[in-house]
Simulated scan of single mutants.
Amino acid sequence: MNQTLKVEGMSCHHCQAAVEKAVKGIAGVENVQVDLAKKEVVVTGSVDREQITKAIKEAGYEVVG
């Protein structure tokens, strides 16, 4: 199952890597794709959206949609 989240605060490849690392650390995540231009994170796997949101916020970014 794919989930797409809009994330604010990402502006460079370091941001992209930080978000990717945070989300990949969640059990059940199979794949993570971070698109800086669209400010989107696409997560594949069986994981709760709240867990993804929490991991992104803990990494210092804001989920806006």
Rank of each mutant, 00 (worst) to 15 (best):
V47I: 07
Q16W: 09
E8V: 01
R49L: 05
G65M: 11
E62A: 14
K38R: 13
A55L: 02
Q16P: 13
K39L: 00
M10F: 12
V47N: 08
H14Q: 11
V63G: 10
M1V: 03
K24F: 01
D48G: 09
K57V: 02
V47C: 05
V23A: 05
Q16M: 15
N31Y: 08
E58P: 10
K39M: 02
E30H: 03
K54Q: 12
H14S: 15
G65D: 13
A17D: 15
G28K: 06
G9R: 11
Q51I: 04
V34N: 03
G9Q: 07
G28C: 08
C15E: 07
V34E: 04
V63S: 09
M10T: 14
V64T: 15
V32T: 13
N2K: 05
K39I: 01
G65R: 13
D35S: 15
V19C: 03
T44G: 01
V42N: 06
E50C: 08
V7W: 04
A55W: 00
K38G: 01
S46W: 02
K21C: 05
I26T: 02
T4H: 00
V19D: 00
V63K: 07
A22S: 10
D48C: 09
E58N: 14
M10G: 02
V47F: 04
G60I: 11
C15W: 10
K6V: 13
E58G: 12
K6D: 06
Q33P: 09
I56N: 01
G28A: 04
D35G: 07
K24W: 04
E40V: 00
K38M: 09
V43M: 08
M1T: 04
E8M: 09
I52W: 09
K6R: 14
I26Q: 03
G45E: 00
D35Q: 11
Q3M: 11
A27L: 05
